[in-house]
Simulated scan of single mutants.
Amino acid sequence: MLIHTEPTPATEELLTRAMFPDPVRIARALATYRTAEDRRIFAWKTGGEVVSAAGLHVGHGEAEVLHVGTRPDMEGQGYGRALLHAVLIRLQLNRMTAETDDDAVDFYRRSGFGVVETQDRGGRRRYLCTLTPGKADQPCC
């Protein structure tokens, strides 16, 4: 079940899994979710518990996935993928994008995003991932 939520300890813990492990940067990113109108957190609940959360920058019919994390004991079961597809449909977005690296690009591919390699940053390959409503309408899980 998809829910839109304010930051909670559970959602913040999941979002932190997708952040660079620097306490200052983590605190800054979490504060932005609490204060910026264009930042939103969505979560996927199953059995009454939040199992996956996504933090997005939303505006003008589009959203950029900034962070997505799933409980370690629930990874690989499609909750992150279902969450992103449900958000795209619920918000009636024209497109959802994410910029990622080698560590997460396969998650986006499996989730139906088109993937294009882009400019390296910091010696690491980067990818621009894009999901459109036609792709999100297909069964994902």
Rank of each mutant, 00 (worst) to 15 (best):
G122H: 12
D103M: 12
D106R: 13
R126A: 08
A54P: 02
S52W: 01
A36D: 14
A104F: 04
V24P: 00
R109S: 10
G48Y: 03
V51H: 01
A18R: 02
F42G: 03
D102T: 08
S52Y: 01
A63E: 10
C129D: 05
Q77K: 15
H4T: 10
H57T: 04
P133G: 06
C141P: 01
D106F: 08
A53S: 14
M74C: 12
T8N: 05
R81C: 11
T100A: 09
D120V: 01
P23N: 07
V58I: 13
C140E: 02
L15S: 04
A27L: 04
E75S: 00
A31S: 14
D73R: 10
R110E: 13
T35D: 13
P133V: 03
T100E: 12
V24M: 11
T97D: 14
P139F: 06
S111M: 05
Y127E: 10
D137W: 13
A53H: 04
R39S: 05
H85E: 05
G123S: 04
L14N: 02
C141T: 01
L84C: 09
G69D: 11
C141K: 03
T8D: 07
T16A: 14
D101V: 03
A136F: 06
R34K: 15
K135R: 14
L131R: 05
L88R: 02
P139H: 11
A31L: 14
I3C: 06
A10V: 10
G55E: 04
L91C: 05
L2K: 07
H85D: 02
E12M: 09
G78D: 07
Q138C: 02
L66C: 01
T70H: 05
E49I: 01
G112N: 05
L2E: 09
H85I: 03
A27S: 14
A27M: 03
T16G: 02
F20K: 04
Q119F: 09
A82P: 00
T132G: 00
E6N: 11
T132H: 06
S52H: 00
G76V: 09
Y79P: 00
A63Y: 07
P72H: 11
L66V: 11
P139L: 10
T32P: 00
G76D: 10
R95G: 12
C141R: 13
K45G: 00
T46G: 11
T8Q: 07
V115R: 08
D106W: 09
Q92A: 15
A104G: 07
T118N: 09
A29L: 09
R71E: 13
R81M: 06
Q119H: 11
D106Q: 14
H4C: 10
R95E: 15
E99I: 15
E12C: 13
V105I: 13
R109L: 08
F107V: 08
Y108S: 03
I26T: 12
H57R: 12
R109Y: 04
